[in-house]
Design a protein around this nucleic acid. Sequence first.
DNA 1: ATGGTAGACCTTCTA
Length: 259
Amino acid sequence: MKIATWNVNSVNARLETVLRWFEAESPDIACLQEIKCVDERFPVEAFERLGYSVAVHGQKTYNGVALLSRTPLEDVVRGLPGDPDDLQARYIEAVASGPRAVRVASIYLPNGNPVGTDKFAYKLAWFERLRRRAGELLAFEDPVALLGDYNVIPGPEDVHDPQAWLGDALYQPQSRSAYRALQWVGYTDAYAAADGAPGGYTFWDYQAGAWPRDLGIRIDHALLSPIAADALKGVTIHRDVRGWDKPSDHVPVVVDLAL
DNA sequence: ATGGTAGACCTTCTA
């Protein structure tokens, strides 16, 4: 079973590119982030034609997440539990049903820049809510896969130049610690567990020639519950997609599970 | 030294 995550940076501006990738790779489940549209403007039919069930948690202009699955999506949760005042659409969770049911979430963690502002505080608070939710999910029978744009560079091997990112919210000690705390709850970073090599970047900025110079960072992650981690066969970063026409600044990451 | 690009949307914000 292949589960993908991809920050598409506007699903409508990128639809042709996104569909092209889905036709080539046909993941069983996919988690999209930064769809940048309200629910009504998500291209549901285009994905249904490819055989997917669709669940959307959209928002105007910013954020927005979605889940796609070849089996029906059940028990959909829109929005990260724990703060009714948080209106940003950054979390959707559901069970991809069937004989190999998986509980999956599409996560768009706050960026948090600049450090020292309420944006960074929001990032850390969101991380804490996610940790609590992740703990709750371990009580369910189904394996759990939490995929998305975590906006965290886990370690120095995940960035072209650690020094250049020291002041950035994505590489703050608190951000990295919060990401590790998710693993202490009982989740496994799929890329690390699959012996992913250093330099497995998933994001290259549009600016300053970051892509041709390979100035990338690894911030799109898959965290797996124990049963899911036991079934891990491999992780593939679809790096070549960054070189396509009209690319997102993120590329798809696919985890392959023996489920 | 404070740029450089992309998307949504309406003038600036977010990344």
